[in-house]
Amino acid sequence: MIIRLHQALSSFITYIIFFYIFNFDKVSSIIISIIVGLICVIPDYDYKIYNWANKQYENINKSKILKYLLFPYYLFILFLLKLFKHRGFTHSIFPIIIFFLLGLFIMKIFYLFSLAFLLHIIEDSLTVSGITPLYPLSNYKFVIPILNNRKNRKVQEYLSYIIYIMFFAIILL
């Protein structure tokens, strides 16, 4: 799913949840929905981290001496490659649980991170690529194939514009 559609859907759904269900005031609901809309793209940075770590791995593997000299760094790179496989850990239920617990015990702002990650993986489950909700414990994929990123990119762009218009219209009511 494209970033703009993630942000539009997450902001719109968050506003509805906080304003209509939790009865927050309008300004607080708008601020919270914008924050969640910004946070909801974080899970997709796994792709960038994975690519960076893969380049580091290739550079270290060019020389056995370098691999041994940088062994702790090499292990860290292997850890990143395992953890940040695209649609892996960041698209599972574990970050949601971690952020929820951080919100419970440390700062309430982490509840918004938990909500943003939850909305993100629900939205990504609607694509043909799906999600792995229990990664790294299981490679089981959950898919509701409504959107295809390669074929429906324009549809997703138009859908994001429509949802943004609905979001601004509902705010103005």
Rank of each mutant, 00 (worst) to 15 (best):
M1Y: 13
M1H: 09
M1N: 11
I3P: 00
R4H: 05
R4M: 05
L5Q: 02
A8V: 07
A8T: 07
I13C: 09
I13N: 07
T14F: 08
I17A: 14
F19G: 00
Y20Q: 04
I21C: 10
F22C: 05
F22S: 11
F22D: 08
F22I: 09
N23E: 14
K26S: 13
S29F: 12
I31Q: 09
I32M: 10
I32T: 15
V36K: 07
V36S: 04
V36G: 09
C40W: 03
V41L: 05
I42V: 13
D44R: 06
D46C: 04
Y47A: 01
K48E: 09
Y50T: 02
N51R: 15
N51Q: 13
W52L: 10
W52M: 09
K55Q: 12
Q56G: 00
E58A: 11
I60E: 00
K62E: 14
K64P: 12
K64R: 12
L66A: 11
K67V: 04
L69S: 02
L69V: 05
P72N: 08
P72D: 11
P72W: 13
Y73W: 07
L75P: 00
F76V: 12
F79T: 09
F79H: 01
L80H: 01
K82R: 08
K82I: 04
L83N: 00
F84Y: 12
T90I: 01
T90W: 08
S92V: 01
I93A: 08
I93G: 07
P95R: 08
I96P: 04
I97R: 00
I97W: 02
F99Y: 12
L102Q: 04
M107G: 01
I109M: 06
L112C: 03
L112Y: 15
F113I: 01
A116Q: 07
L119Y: 08
L119S: 07
H120W: 11
H120E: 07
H120M: 07
I122Y: 03
E123N: 15
D124S: 03
S125W: 11
T127Y: 10
T127M: 06
T127Q: 10
T127W: 11
S129F: 11
S129Y: 15
I131C: 02
T132F: 04
T132L: 04
P133A: 10
L137C: 06
N139L: 03
N139V: 00
K141W: 02
P145K: 01
I146C: 06
I146G: 03
L147P: 01
N149G: 13
N149Y: 10
R150N: 12
K151E: 15
N152S: 09
R153Q: 07
K154F: 14
K154Q: 11
V155E: 15
S160T: 07
Y161Q: 04
I163A: 10
I171L: 14
